[in-house]
Amino acid sequence: MTSDADLDAPRRRLPRSLLLGAALTGLVVVVALLSLLWTPHPAEQVRVIARLRPPSAANWLGTDHFGRDALSMIMVGARNSLAVAAAAVGIGILGGVPLGLVAAARRGWPDEGVARMADLLFAFPALLTAILLTALLGPGAINAVLALGVFNVAVLARVTRGAALQVWRREFVRAALALGRGPTAVTVVHVLPNVAGAVIVQATILFAVAILNEAALSYLGLGIQPPAPSWGKMLGDAQTYLFTAPMQAVYPGAAIALAVLGLNLLGDGLRDLLDPRHKTTTLG
């Protein structure tokens, strides 16, 4: 789809989306890390008497229905969201990259198997399947990770395979094979470093998708379990008092949007930098 002009164009300056994306993602990560050391109030501290307070000097974003400090919950929620998403993407990388590499190196039945598995998984709407799987495994952070991770395995396997196949056609790989290197060695030494860019880009975008889907699961009560704060759960709770304290529904939603926006921008920027041929997909 992309003309060669893109490849030839020298790219000296960093893409603007990369900078903005890195800044936003950095902000979320810093807030998440900060929450380990400090929050304005303990995030799980219940003070029923101070419930649904508007923003004040003591509670910058007000309090929820149990009088918990909304800002502290958003901060700890960032940590929990990132942790679940990172684990879901980690499963995808650990499972998908080797599968894709093997498929590209061996062709034949392993290749066919990976393609069929991906076809099969892609036939199921991801969120609906995640809902089904958490119903099967029981709600909770770990099961949400598994339910979201399954799809990442398929996506990353497909992306790795596609990128690896291209590498296999390159001259230096043929040269290495001619010099008597085995397929395993070629995969590790030559293919893996050359597919890393595509994998990193795709993983960043999957990270954003995982944050969105984790929020949806928690919103439905299937993800991270209380009292651990999560953005999706805060949104679900706030919906019941939408008319008395509407801002409590606005903050967590904005936090989700900001994190996803940052990661998507980062992914797009990284793509421009590392993967100009666009092997990766945003449509996860």
Partner: peptide, 14 residues
């Protein structure tokens, strides 16, 4: 970018 980042259920609530 923003359109993809906004969770649809949150947008629905808004």
């Amino acid at each position: 970018q923003v359109g993809i980042a906004v969770p649809s259920f949150w947008f629905a609530i808004l």
